[in-house]
């Protein structure tokens, strides 16, 4: 169950500069836990105690997980989970 996670620029300080990382997980929540294990500090940037932070967008392949099953959205081998940053700057 290898999932490719695309990391936005402002979070790459937590992934040694990598823009993509491979982790295992059958659901988005499991992938985030695996991310946290490999790159401590990432989970807190993505989630708060109510779930995905309101300004964070997670895409399972092309679809926002808010319109799927949220953190329970299933992922299959070879899928991509993208972390999309807010637009910043003038």
């Amino acid at each position: 169950m290898s999932i490719t996670v695309r990391i936005p620029t402002p979070l790459r300080s937590l992934t040694d500069g990598e823009d993509e990382v491979q982790v295992d997980g059958a659901k988005v929540a499991a992938v985030i836990d695996a991310l946290e294990a490999a790159h401590p500090g990432l989970k807190d940037r993505l989630l708060d105690d109510k779930g995905v932070r309101r300004f964070v967008n997670l895409y399972a392949n092309d679809e926002d997980i808010r319109f799927l099953d949220g953190l329970d959205t299933p992922l299959a081998d070879g899928d991509t989970l993208s972390i999309i940053p807010a637009i910043a700057g003038g």
Binding site: P8, P10, S13, R53, F55, A86, A88, G89
Partner: peptide, 9 residues
């Protein structure tokens, strides 16, 4: 660094 305040840096 990873935030949702559009327009701010």
């Amino acid at each position: 660094p990873f935030h949702g305040l559009e327009g701010l840096k």
